[in-house]
Design a protein around this nucleic acid. Sequence first.
DNA 1: TTATTTCTTGATCAATTGGTCAAGAGTTGT
DNA 2: ACAACTCTTGACCAATTGATCAAGAAATAA
Lengths: 206, 206
Amino acid sequence: MPQSTAKIVQKTRIQHQNQALILKAALEVFSAFGYRGGTIDQIAKKCGLSKPNLLYYFKRKEDVYVAVLEATLAEWLEPLRGLDVNGDPIVELTRYVSEKLEISLKNPQASKLFANEILHGAPHIQKFLKGPLRDLVEEKSAVILEWVAQKKIAPVDPQHLIFAIWAVTQHYADFSVQVEAIMGSEPKPDRTRKAVIELLLRGLRA
Amino acid sequence: MPQSTAKIVQKTRIQHQNQALILKAALEVFSAFGYRGGTIDQIAKKCGLSKPNLLYYFKRKEDVYVAVLEATLAEWLEPLRGLDVNGDPIVELTRYVSEKLEISLKNPQASKLFANEILHGAPHIQKFLKGPLRDLVEEKSAVILEWVAQKKIAPVDPQHLIFAIWAVTQHYADFSVQVEAIMGSEPKPDRTRKAVIELLLRGLRA
DNA sequence: TTATTTCTTGATCAATTGGTCAAGAGTTGT
DNA sequence: ACAACTCTTGACCAATTGATCAAGAAATAA
């Protein structure tokens, strides 16, 4: 028992590489079929590993799912963080909506994964919702209320404004099938961006 | 072979009753766990039938799912149908948003079932999306454009306006867990209604 | 009542699937 | 080269689950 202390959990190059492969494949599978619908066989096959080999890196299916889910949470919060009380409200909100929409369009799988998790009761991210997410929304609601108090924007319910921004931007990722069925083809990102910003923010100009 | 023609498929009282039981239980199960996550055992147990008995009324699991899904589609379309080109735009749109929101709040399970189906590529309702839904959206987009042409409302992209209304109203059903986690409790329906209408329609007043 | 149809279920099957294990292959440090 | 550790896999297991079937119970029509 040479090395004095506990087992050092330093990641091997192979570990790093294979875990990344697994998480990438898992995102594709779970976002397409949901947690229960996706199988570790699918994931293993998609990244060229054998099933036992995959389970060597993540002991349980749930561990894979939680890992890929948590990897998306940080990205999810990021754009809202930037909302700056000292900036111009319309500029700030426009940037926020644009960023949120762009992320949805660029990485719809992450959005779908997240949507599916919440749709089914968010069993794995209760703490995230009631902790960091709630705190951040509270903080930014205060920012928006401050803008209202300063008469920089029209009176608005800040929480519901944030909900509306989330709902609309994620709609284009989560319900892309419906959007495309109705529009006849993939919507033009630029037209979508302009329309969404107008719809959500035009009513706010003081 | 007495009765001359083909088998008459007239529903018995028992059939009617048990099918209703099954569809009710199936909505609860599928909306909570998704298609793959829900099992016919769960559904059977929930409505007090044995599994083979359930399968006597619906041969396959998929048949149960499709039946309950289609039962929600009509209700889904209904509010938009009412949008009347001859009415006052703000009144009409306010009524539409209110109705859509109320349905979401009153029957979140149907909304979640529908959301889950689309989230996973809408494999069972492609025809509904590309047929009746698309046609209706096209028709009502024309109504909105007419209002714009008459300068009764501000210029707006009608399709994206409809998407935004869907997204926001359904958000309160589909992501209720998130909404409650952030607001700390179930949101007051009345405050929600006012906030949503303001957010979506304030920018439209000509 | 009797005959016919409808309804119900216990037993069972085959396929899927999450997970284990032991043994071997590959890699790394000395 | 050697030892120790890391990585990989075929075979296998147990639980779940969608679906079947034959036989009996219940309802309905004659």
